[in-house]
Design a binder for these strands. Sequence first.
DNA 1: GAGTAACGCGACTGATTATTCGCAAACGAT
DNA 2: ATCGTTTGCGAATAATCAGTCGCGTTACTC
Lengths: 208, 208
Amino acid sequence: MADEVADEVQPKRRQARGERRMAQILDASAVVIARTGYERATTIAIATEAGISPGSLYQFFRNKKAIAEALADRFVTELGAAHRSAFDSTDFAAIPLDEVLDRIVDPIVAFNIANPGFKALFARPDMPEGLTDAARPIQAALLDRIEAMIAVRAPELPEAERHRTARVGINLFQALIPLVVATEEAERPLMVAELKKALRGYLGPVIG
Amino acid sequence: MADEVADEVQPKRRQARGERRMAQILDASAVVIARTGYERATTIAIATEAGISPGSLYQFFRNKKAIAEALADRFVTELGAAHRSAFDSTDFAAIPLDEVLDRIVDPIVAFNIANPGFKALFARPDMPEGLTDAARPIQAALLDRIEAMIAVRAPELPEAERHRTARVGINLFQALIPLVVATEEAERPLMVAELKKALRGYLGPVIG
DNA sequence: GAGTAACGCGACTGATTATTCGCAAACGAT
DNA sequence: ATCGTTTGCGAATAATCAGTCGCGTTACTC
């Protein structure tokens, strides 16, 4: 149970081939982790999926946890971009609620559909200590953005209530995402519509 | 990956002492699984928590998976009771929506608070094949009950839409449950209120 | 084109953990 | 009290899997 401290550092010189291998390994681990979860994702399965030998994994990553962390970093970066595209350069005071929801929901739904490994990595509890931490900053940032959006549209709402509303709203959103992703493509727009209905129903009385 | 078929049967004669031990073991496994998840719940940890030796576990359960299955059965039984107490002997056509929500939400929330191991067992992906299956019948039953409730209050709603509304409503509920459970006791009523707000917001336009 | 470092392999090692085994103690019926 | 069964133990066993090692290959650098 005793966890090591100070694991980072040591950039190490790489060839272009190596960079490609690392990306390949991350792709493979996303697939395997999405399929089985972290605990059951064996290093051999990841290596096989990547088409390399198990020993080669350790040429690029210190251990299994480091692979998951690198994958998490990659997701966090991409999700951050999705968030920015959802929130930046939008004046949330000036548009109707339905459009607010469209602007926020659509890009994040798109991200989740495009990255099925994402949920597996962050939403599942069978991971090494500190891996969920990687997602914390971006979750916090999302919470801040939602709170700011609420504050703009309902300035008189007490802070505690605003905070709680944002938290519940995010949870609600995250809860329905799996349902949307699991729905076959043809039905998906209907599910997205339901998701927005749920958000509108909850947020409408406050920031409608 | 090859799974055994036909595992059940073989009731075996037991002393009263043995029955008590089995209950003890299930209690212990609920605690350990709630704490660590199924994969990380070692048989030694379960035995220690139960105050017995690892060998003794196998006097009562064929293997680790059988323990989880027995625990799942127990939860399913208790949850079924919670559902019945929520749905039976209530005329959903005759009462306002807020009361409908109270009647349904409160007992299920209470069950989840009283059984922290429940979520760990069913919501986590690190479980033996077929364990999630144990929960399927009861989920299906819940879906039916919710659909019936909606049908009573909104008879003109097309079936497909009724079905989708029920599914989304259940997901929404299940999503916010962890938030309620994780909230410290003093704040909990506020979170339950938020949960009901979310449900009212989503269901209100349909069955309000 | 020689030297050096990165890359690649797959068998091996060490630790962990589910399960078994042999034996002893406690029960329950007669 | 006595016999057969259930219960109880904890050391031994066997499987799995993360991570290592030694050695060969490939790619840059000069």
